[in-house]
Design a protein around this nucleic acid. Sequence first.
DNA 1: TTGTAGGCGTTATCAC
DNA 2: GTGATAACGCCTACAA
Lengths: 329, 329
Amino acid sequence: MRPTLQDIASATNTSVSTVSRVLSGGTVAQRISLATRQKILQVAKKMGYQPNLIARSLRTRRTDTVGLLVSDIANPWFGQMASRIEQALHRHGYSLILCNSGEDEKVESQYLQLLAQRGIDGLIVVPLARTREALMEHLPENLPLVLLDRPIPGIAHSIASDQRQLAGQLCDTLWQVGVRQVALVCGPHHIVTHQTRASLVAERFKVIFRYEGPAQIETGRQAMVQLNCRPQAIICTNNFLGQGVIDAIDRFDKPPIIGCFDEIPLMHLMTVPVVCSNQDIPLMAEVCVDQLLMQLRGKQATSGVHTTVPIRVITNRAFREQFASTVEK
Amino acid sequence: MRPTLQDIASATNTSVSTVSRVLSGGTVAQRISLATRQKILQVAKKMGYQPNLIARSLRTRRTDTVGLLVSDIANPWFGQMASRIEQALHRHGYSLILCNSGEDEKVESQYLQLLAQRGIDGLIVVPLARTREALMEHLPENLPLVLLDRPIPGIAHSIASDQRQLAGQLCDTLWQVGVRQVALVCGPHHIVTHQTRASLVAERFKVIFRYEGPAQIETGRQAMVQLNCRPQAIICTNNFLGQGVIDAIDRFDKPPIIGCFDEIPLMHLMTVPVVCSNQDIPLMAEVCVDQLLMQLRGKQATSGVHTTVPIRVITNRAFREQFASTVEK
DNA sequence: TTGTAGGCGTTATCAC
DNA sequence: GTGATAACGCCTACAA
C-alpha cells in the first residue's frame, strides 16, 4: 500500500496537517519551521510518497484535467489537433483525457456523461449533437466548454474555420480552370461540417453524381466503384474521403480533378491533379486552448466567442502543370 | 451544486445506504422493497442525479480507467492504434486517458508519475525508457502493464512486431531487385525501434549515406536536402520519415527506390517505386488490450508474455512495373 | 509554528 | 429491508 500523509505524520511525529502543508509547497510551506520541514521532506522522499490525486480532487473539487472528445482519433487531422491541444494544456498544468465518439451519437452522449461524472475542469468537444439541449444534457451548466470544428447555436465558445470561405476558395480554384459540373463524395449529412460543405459546393457546381457514407477512406473507394459518369472534378468533404477516392482512381485513363477539404498527404507527388482547402490546425488548437483557459481562470463567463481562423488553398504540381495557362502562379 | 446520495435520501425519507444500494443496481438493489426502490429511482431521475466517480474511486480503489502513453499521437500509426485500443477498452467498460510523451524522457516520466497518482487501473505504454528501473520508477509494482511496440527486458508483457522479420522481408524485397547499397534515414538511435531497424538494415546493405533526426516528416525532407550521393534505395525507419523523404524526392530525375517501415498513405499512386513493411495495427491493438484485461481481471500475475504479431510487405505499382522481370507477381 | 477536527460523496460493515 | 456509521486520503478553517 502506498504511504499516505498519515503515514508520514506518524513517522515524523507530526500531524497530517503539517505534512500536508509542507508537501503542498508554496507559501504555506514557508510557515513551517525549517527543521520539521526538512525532516518531513526527507521522510516523504524515502517512503516514496505520492499524493493521491483522487482524494485531493474530492476535497478540492478540481481535477486539473480537461476532456477532449473527438469524433475519430484515427484521422490524422484530429491526431494533429489532439497533439497540439495536449501540449498546450500540459504547459499550463492540465492533463488531457481523450475520448473518441466514432461519430456515434450514443457513444458521444455516454462519454459526455462519463466526463461530467469524472469531474473534469473543462471540456473541448467536436460534437455530433446539433442542439444545445442534446449536448448539455448531462453536463453541468457552468462547465468551461469549447466546441471545436462544429459550432452549435446557443453555445458560447467555438473554434472553426469559415466553411463558406473554405468552400468558396476551393470552388473558385476549380471554376477558374473550367469546372462546371462535379461528383460529390461526402460524409454523413447529419454531421454539420459535411452537410455545409456539400451544400456550399452544390451552390456553385452542377452535381452529376453523389455518394454519401461514413467519413472514412473506404467510403471514398466505394464511391469510385459506383461512379457511373465523367465529372470534371470530384469533390470530397474531408481528407479521408479524398484519400479513398484518390486511392481508387486508377481505373480512369484521364482522371478528373480531385477537390478536397483538408489535407491529402503527399498530394504533390501524385499525377492526379489535386486541390485542397486546408485549415490551420496549429492555430485552431492554440485558440481553442486559449479560450478554454480563459474560462478556467476567470470564472466569469467571458461573453460568447465564435472564432473562425484563416484557411488556405493548395494545388499540387499535377494540377498546376495541367492548367498552367489558366492559372497564374 | 449537483445532488448527492444524501440529497436523494432526504427527499425520499430514506438513508444514503438505501439510496446507494438502489442506484448501484445489481443484486443488492433486488433486496430493497419495490416501493422504495421505485420512489428512489424516480426522485433520482427527477433531480438529475449523477454519481461522483471521484468519491466512488476513493472508496473502491478502482477508477475503471486505463492509461495510454504514446510517443506521438500526431502520427497516424499511433492514432489508429489509440483508436482501436480505445474502442476495445470501451467495450469492456474501461475508459482511456491518453497522454503524449512526444519522445521526451522528461515528459514521459512526468506522465507516468501523474498516471500513477491518478490511480489508473492499468497502463499501456510506448516507452522511451529502456530499462525496467527507469520505467517503473514512479509506478506501483503490481500495476497491470503492457508495453507496446518497444519491449523492455524484465517487463513481462509486451506487444510488438518482430523487427527482424520486418527488416528481413523489406531487405529481401530490395535485394531481389538488385539493391546492394542504400541511404538510411532513421529516427533517434536512443529509441530502440529505430536503432534496431537501422542496424538490421546495415547488416544487409552497404550504407553509403546516413541521416538521423526526430521521427518527423520534416526530418525526411531535410535528409534529402543533405543527400550527396546516388543510393540504389533509401530506407526509412518509420512512416513519417518515409513521407518526408518521398515528399522531397522530386529533385531526382530517376529517383531511387524507397524502402520504408510502416505504411505510406497512397503509395501506390506514386511514380516513385516504394516498398513498405507493414505492421498489423488492429491485431496489435487487440492483443494488447487482451493482455491488459487478463491482468485486470485475474489479479494473478500471468506469466510473462512477449507477443510478436505477423507482418506483411507491400510494394506499390511503380515498384512492380519497374521490376516486372525480376519479381514474380 | 503546529495540531484537531470536519467534511468532500461513496461504498461497505454492522446492527436492528 | 433498512439505517447508522466508519472509512477512503486529502485539505483547511479554527484553535492552541
